[in-house]
Design a protein around this nucleic acid. Sequence first.
DNA 1: CTACTACAAATGTGATCACATTATTTAAAA
DNA 2: TTTTAAATAATGTGATCACATTTGTAGTAG
Lengths: 236, 236
Amino acid sequence: MKTHKSANFDLLMLEKTAEQKTNQWVYHLLRTNLLCGKIAPGIPLTIRGLAEALNVSPMPVREALHRLTCEGAVEAKNNRRVIVPLMTAEKFNELCEMRILLEAHAAENALPYIREADITNLESIDSSIDEAVQRGDVEATSLLNQEFHRSLYSANPFQIVVPLIESVWLQLGPFSRIAISKLEKIYIVDRHMEAIDALKRHNSFGLRCAIEADIRDGIASIKTVEGIHNYFKGVA
Amino acid sequence: MKTHKSANFDLLMLEKTAEQKTNQWVYHLLRTNLLCGKIAPGIPLTIRGLAEALNVSPMPVREALHRLTCEGAVEAKNNRRVIVPLMTAEKFNELCEMRILLEAHAAENALPYIREADITNLESIDSSIDEAVQRGDVEATSLLNQEFHRSLYSANPFQIVVPLIESVWLQLGPFSRIAISKLEKIYIVDRHMEAIDALKRHNSFGLRCAIEADIRDGIASIKTVEGIHNYFKGVA
DNA sequence: CTACTACAAATGTGATCACATTATTTAAAA
DNA sequence: TTTTAAATAATGTGATCACATTTGTAGTAG
């Protein structure tokens, strides 16, 4: 029996597919948990603790944590601790501006490559989001929402912006969860529908507006949350 | 005597400072070599080969290569090879657009935080660039040029965009070297001077224009290079 | 001379260990 | 009871090893 420190992480597990290496599995698992806000800011993530919690050797966890660090998802303090970074109001604003800047650009540059199959796919994802919202599944809603955006931007085969966008998402992680959990169903669906309509009409400006509005809706909904200030830095 | 594979990498060495860990040293060394184009696209980078060339154990190289992979500086093929990715015309255009988008934004958001000390620092860097250009030192010019831009954008203490910009730089790495090597001295200095002037006058739009022009000059100079097509994918 | 097969070398991944550094607990003193 | 100091536990880093997979090279058959 390990008498270590009872590393009880409350993680949502993913099954490890056969073709993916252990480090990829660990990376995607941690990443998913960060993106849907399952790991709270401030608590330290340790290599050995996670390794024990996931029943793997420390090595894959080490690589996954390093990768998440360089993507900005977690922060390596100088005192040898890795934590989910605390949010500040200024950083939050910068991240939101960055989302709009990058995603509006990505959407416009994806538009010329959109085919009917892509639109069908997006509509399918959107209806999945609808289901997830109706059954109150916050994690699924958050992840499906990201899949919607990523699928749209990835239609451009020469795109290099998605990794940058995902880095921003990772840094917004815990907050996007709050946003989605408080979000009225109507807003999300509407904006995604607007985006799909713009795609069908090859309307570049309309697409940009829909994406921007979708993001701003999320931001606005965050700011209406009652105890939102408690999630910012400086408050325990 | 190791009879391995004579891993002769032509790297420009950096001295390992006392306070930095081995993996950080390896990372910065490889990064610097990639940024100034010392490592040509296509050739495979191996953990053991680099470890032998740098006289370190494979472990720090492993971490450095993983980090560079997730930053897009090198590409991990599905067969187990890590190479400097080959450039395509479309990808090049996307990267250039991304530079302008991100750096113009970064410059504008840095402007309110610029102090006289920052301007003095930028002028100092600019004169160093001048010296490097005059003595024909391509690597130094490339690195100093990046330092100019990074220093400018980093004036904003809440900035989160510099890591994204650096990722784009890394992906443009080998090409920026070509650009700088062919660049007329006048252009660089002029644009940087324009930027500094705009800073002094707190002229946001002027700053944006100067940065955009600086980037576009670099792109334009690349496109005038004679054998530039040889550096794109598809040509040996 | 070319194409396919088998053997050998090399590679990335994961595991385990040693060590210096840091965090946490325990004990003592005020 | 509070503060300080020593001792103990835990951590990240780097090194080495084992193993499955892939690459590269001879060697053979056609």
